[in-house]
């Protein structure tokens, strides 16, 4: 399975668009939001702002990376590659497992790069334990979006999947308060934001960063994770990976 894992990893790594949207863009947004808005807040509040932007952008990057890596399954099905693999001795089950693992692993560079930018460009000051806990908890929480990506990737054909990667990530980020904090949202939008997994994902990061662990984000995310995983299983049963597109 290792060879298939490395093979898949190398393929995603060659995708410049993927690297741009999951690593470079969140890193640039981290600098941009912090420096632009940071200039307008009193000096005493800069640390809070930089920390909040950092957590939001880590969440944004992680969601994009998890969705982008897994929704790609749809491309491999549409191209006929998964059918082709099916008629080789490569075990069919490992193909699925590898895509899930690759999705989970690729969240990490996004989290780490944004964290480094937050620390060394924006000067966010957390203790070492907080940094580790922050990256670790968001990495673990990103499993929810890996499951969502798998369900979407299995359900859609290549063209729709290509659009879904961008749209889903953007909608989850924008409406979940990752680009602009929910404090700036009108009332109805706040309710909507609090119904989205992206909001609770960022909330998990904010809790860990502030050292005020409440458990609510974990419960909500676990619920979403279960729903997405169940959806993925249902779709997988209806549309096997080697089925012809359509």
């Amino acid at each position: 399975m290792t060879d298939l894992f490395l093979f898949q990893l190398r393929r995603v790594g060659r995708n410049k668009q993927y690297l741009f949207f999951t690593v470079l863009l969140p890193a640039l947004f981290t600098i941009f939001f912090t420096q632009v808005i940071g200039g307008q807040v009193p000096a005493g509040e800069f640390q809070d702002l930089a920390g909040a932007v950092l957590v939001s952008m880590m969440a944004y990057g992680a969601i994009g990376a998890a969705l982008g890596a897994t929704i790609r399954m749809a491309f491999d099905r549409s191209s006929g590659w998964l059918r082709q693999l099916r008629v080789t001795p490569v075990p069919a089950g490992s193909v699925f497992a590898v895509d899930v693992l690759v999705g989970a692993l690729l969240v990490l560079p996004s989290l780490v790069v944004v964290a480094l930018v937050g620390r060394f460009v924006n000067g966010v000051e957390f203790g070492l334990g907080t940094w580790v806990a922050l990256v670790g908890s968001l990495w673990a929480g990103s499993v929810v979006f890996v499951a969502l990506g798998v369900a979407v990737g299995l359900a859609l054909d290549a063209q729709a999947a290509g659009a879904a990667i961008g749209i889903l990530g953007t909608v989850l980020a924008a409406l979940g308060g990752l680009w602009f904090p929910v404090e700036m949202f009108p009332g109805g939008m706040v309710t909507l934001a609090r119904a989205l997994p992206s909001y609770w994902f960022a909330e998990l990061g904010r809790d860990v960063a502030a050292g005020t662990f409440t458990g609510a984000p974990v419960l909500v995310l676990a619920g979403y994770g279960a729903v997405f995983a169940a959806a993925a299983l249902v779709v997988a049963r209806r549309r096997p990976l080697h089925a012809v597109a359509g």
Partner: peptide
């Protein structure tokens, strides 16, 4: 039979993975 490596097949709707080199695909199989 396929898992045991006894069968080779060309499909009408078979395909190759994007973003991979020919040699890598061949090595994998």
């Amino acid at each position: 039979a396929l898992q045991a490596g006894g069968v080779g097949a060309m499909l009408q709707h078979g395909g190759l993975p994007s973003e991979a080199r020919v040699g890598e695909v061949l090595a994998l199989v």
